[in-house]
Write a protein that binds this DNA or RNA. Structure first.
Lengths: 235, 235
DNA sequence: CGAGAAGTTGAGCGGCATCAATTGTAGTGG
DNA sequence: CCACTACAATTGATGCCGCTCAACTTCTCG
């Protein structure tokens, strides 16, 4: 149980809450081990729980009638999802599938709802978090129209080297290339070719799912000219 | 001054507020007439005000160093923007330009901030509104990868006939085609050709900036198969 | 009425998707 | 532990959608 509270308080969303509030929202929390491929919920299901990723990866996606999937996001450790459905009578706006086996903590939305209406801090934290997410989506929309396939991959690398604090210039792809391709809005074949082009253009070294780079400069000058943000950006 | 309060209370964001709170946030509000082309603020400026559109249209956009613009959104009457920068020390994440002359009410973020920290209702309203916006962006991202140019135009038409309650099947383009093209993420030339194709495929009639359709069915079957939502959707 | 912008149309090109075939890899069960 | 299988990943060939450049027409407004 302490374990759960620890995981919760690692999320920015809940970090600043008082222990008593934290206790209230986590009193009905349940950690569950899930295997790859498991569907947590489907687009349109009535929403009753929200989730926190303790380990593994979650794919959030939507699909059209003909089965075409679009990835909304891929979540990893510490990420919260489904909490935006806290308002009454909501249904999930996307489906969630385990992309990489791991442990997911599920919490009832009703507990969060109670806390939300009582404690202003939660509302403000959630507002902050949702605003940030909105910013990310806007940026993503920009990238889709200003950056080509190779640049989007490079941009992903830059964001993921900056995230890990140590300055060893190695990137380990967090999940398989098919999913990464879909996340970046391209076909696997295109991903493969674009990665090859990126290698030629910037001199990165690729070994399976590890990417080695000598410097960030070449990557950033390759990408950031097609972006409205200055270089050390937050994604 | 009553005028301002009226405009404010039309926005869902402020609709449910008590008169006293509404008074607090609008006490330093100023309506300003602006002409087309006027820049309200630029991406990166320190944010001190937020705005409500009383009339006219606002273009929110970002641009890369080489001058390429991407449209974040085009706002019309009743829309609020900039309010998500209510948290301290923020800068505008995009630029805002008057796309169609009109009256814009500006309000200091500091007043909103005070109200936000005091009144839970505002925080919750803002959370609701921001969450909705996030959903729209996610849907837009989906549309960019599943729909072609003609379908995106048709989707725009559908959303805009549903908005106006009367069932006269006439759509008046709310702003000029160049801006609409940019908003839908395509070039003006592409827009022109795609509209022609749409006409051929669905039998709509086009007269300048007015679009006539006999029925919604043909449009919806043309578009909604490439979307994860069921037909009468909210955009 | 004239100037400048919006809008349309044409020609050509390039990036990405698609289809198809092959190689690489990881997980499964005998 | 290896053989088998299923899927991930790469590579090739081809086609199409939307971008670009350019010319022309239509509209808007001073």
């Amino acid at each position: 149980m302490d374990d759960i509270i620890n995981t919760l308080s690692e999320a920015p969303l809940f970090a600043t809450l008082t222990p008593s509030v934290l206790n209230d929202i986590s009193k009905n929390a349940h950690p569950n081990a899930h295997k790859k491929g498991k569907i947590l919920f489907i687009h349109g299901d009535p929403a009753e729980h929200y989730y926190i990723v303790k380990s593994g990866h979650i794919k959030l996606f939507r699909e059209t009638v003909d089965g075409t999937q679009t990835i909304i996001d891929v979540l990893s450790q510490g990420n919260v999802f489904g909490h935006t459905l806290v308002f009454e009578e909501n249904t999930y706006p996307y489906s969630a599938e385990i992309a990489e086996s791991g442990i997911i903590i599920s919490l009832p939305l009703s507990d969060l709802r109670d806390a939300l209406y009582n404690d202003n801090t939660i509302a403000i934290n959630m507002l902050r978090a949702t605003t940030n997410r909105l910013r990310l989506r806007e940026k993503e929309l920009e990238h889709r129209s200003t950056q080509n396939a190779s640049q989007r991959i490079a941009c992903f690398f830059l964001r993921h080297t900056l995230q890990r604090k140590n300055d060893s210039l190695v990137i380990h792809l967090p999940y398989d290339k098919m999913l990464l391709a879909a996340h970046l809005g391209m076909q696997p074949e295109t991903f493969s070719r674009a990665l090859l082009k990126l290698k030629k253009d910037t001199g990165i070294r690729i070994e399976g799912s590890s990417i080695y780079l000598n410097t960030l400069d070449r990557l950033s000058s390759y990408v950031c000219s097609s972006c409205s943000e200055r270089f050390p950006c937050n994604g």
